[in-house]
Amino acid sequence: MKQHNTERLSALADGELKGLSRWLAQRHVRHCPQCAAELQRVERVRQTLAACPPIIEMSDSADFFWSKVKRDITTREPQTVFIPVPRLSLADWLLVHRGALATATSGLMVALLTGVMLQQPHSAGPGTVLVERVDTVIPNTVATPLKGAESDVAVIWVSGLEWTADLDEMKQRFENSET
């Protein structure tokens, strides 16, 4: 943890730091009276709010409120609205699933090597394999698109994804994880 990173203290108090970052933050707090005091203040705020949560309830009774909702549902023109299920950004997704990254990284490397080897005959011509690596927020991990000349050979490998030999499936998993 960098010096006096108080934003991360909030995350530490919430149990949102895991693994190495949690260990580093705890270690810093043990040796830094300033951050130890700040962490204590954060926890006092949390305890105070938890002790007396505001009671906010709508004044409509359950039956009355439901009758209004039901009336609107039935009287409005029937329509289907699409509201996407909220998804995490790739960076957040990688943070959340960092536990799976280590095991998947080896799979990624195998996949990369296999992909490159399969493309070897074209490597000097127009079918040259283009490999781009994008650093992720997790140390030592990368997101790697593999692009072949053929339109039906375009695969994106992301460390953290469960390995599958089915390229379309892997691509789909990447797309699903992206946002």
Binding site: M58, F65, D72, T80, I83, V85
Partner: peptide, 20 residues
């Protein structure tokens, strides 16, 4: 807030088929 809660549940009903 009451009106918006009502609207939330109406929208929720209209969209629930797309909910995974």
């Amino acid at each position: 807030a009451t009106d918006l809660s009502q609207e939330t549940f109406v929208k929720g009903w209209q969209a629930i088929r797309g909910f995974k």
